[in-house]
């Protein structure tokens, strides 16, 4: 008995390794806290009244919500295909879906520009129809969708895949149609994965910057989002940039926390 109980010194050294977790925690926390340290509530309140700040927030809100709608609409069938079907070259397709998340956003922006720009393969054709995408709000939405959709698709794929095939078969035996099975069996059972994927996608779209800057450009009220305003504000109007940064940090932190709480709550009740 006595042999198994570590001495106080032994216990200390046993836990000493935990200190090695500290550097990264500090790396994450100190710079983010500095954003708050450098700005006061009063300054934030004043900057919130600036036209550029308001415009950037409105553009960000409008475009990210539109992107999220597109991602849900187009991502769900793709995730269903990936999660519940086997086919040739599935792994290649899976890798393709993951690609935008690891590509530098500037590469994504360049790729979009030379495809959908007015001299691009598809863009040139659209231009003849009178549709010009580059430098428009539509371009912001496309850039965000390109960058953020994989997060939802991946989560939804895993969610759909986790639904037991036997439940589906049981529903089929009871006479449920394909749509009914999806709507009343698979969707409810994977809702948490879909929800957290959607939140992640939205948060990522909100932070999208590099692809937007290249593909959509920068025009206040049209294509200037919060991250691009921060990037340019860094040079001209440091205070406005700080205010927008603080708002983004708070929004991102809260949405991530919300996902985690939801997951924990749901997992406990499952």
């Amino acid at each position: 008995m006595a042999l198994n109980r570590p001495s106080p010194v032994g216990r200390w050294t046993q836990h000493a390794w935990r200190l090695t977790a500290l550097p990264l925690i500090l790396l994450f926390s100190i710079p983010i806290l500095m954003l708050f340290g450098r700005s006061s509530l009063q300054a934030i309140w004043e900057n919130l009244g600036h036209e550029t700040v308001i415009q950037a927030m409105l553009v960000s809100l409008g475009t990210t919500l539109t992107s999220l709608g597109l991602i849900l609409l187009l991502g769900t069938p793709l995730a269903y295909l990936m999660g519940r079907h086997q086919f040739r070259y599935k792994r290649a397709l899976d890798t393709l879906i993951d690609l935008p998340t690891v590509l530098p956003p500037s590469v994504a922006g360049l790729a979009l520009l030379i495809t959908l720009g007015r001299r691009g393969l598809i863009g040139g054709w659209l231009t003849e129809l009178g549709i010009e995408i580059a430098f428009s709000t539509t371009a912001v939405v496309i850039a965000q969708t390109f960058i953020a959709a994989p997060f939802y698709v991946r989560a939804a794929t895993l969610g759909f895949a986790s639904v037991d095939g036997e439940i589906e078969q049981a529903a089929q035996l009871d006479g449920a149609s394909r749509w009914q099975i999806f709507r009343f069996v698979i969707l409810p059972l994977s809702r948490l994965a879909l929800l957290s994927g959607a939140m992640m996608s939205w948060a990522r779209a909100l932070g999208e910057f590099g692809a937007t800057m290249i593909f959509a450009g920068n025009f206040p009220g049209r294509t200037q989002t919060m991250p691009t305003a921060i990037y340019l504000g860094f040079e001209r109007d440091f205070d406005s940039a700080l205010t927008l940064s603080v708002i983004l940090v708070v929004i991102c932190f809260l949405s991530l926390l919300l996902i985690k709480v939801m997951v924990a709550y749901e997992a406990d009740s499952a």
Binding site: V102, R204, L206, F209, P227, C252
Partner: peptide, 9 residues
């Protein structure tokens, strides 16, 4: 993989 905050300047 997610980068919630905007790109560093």
């Amino acid at each position: 993989a997610a980068g919630c905050a905007p790109q560093p300047t």
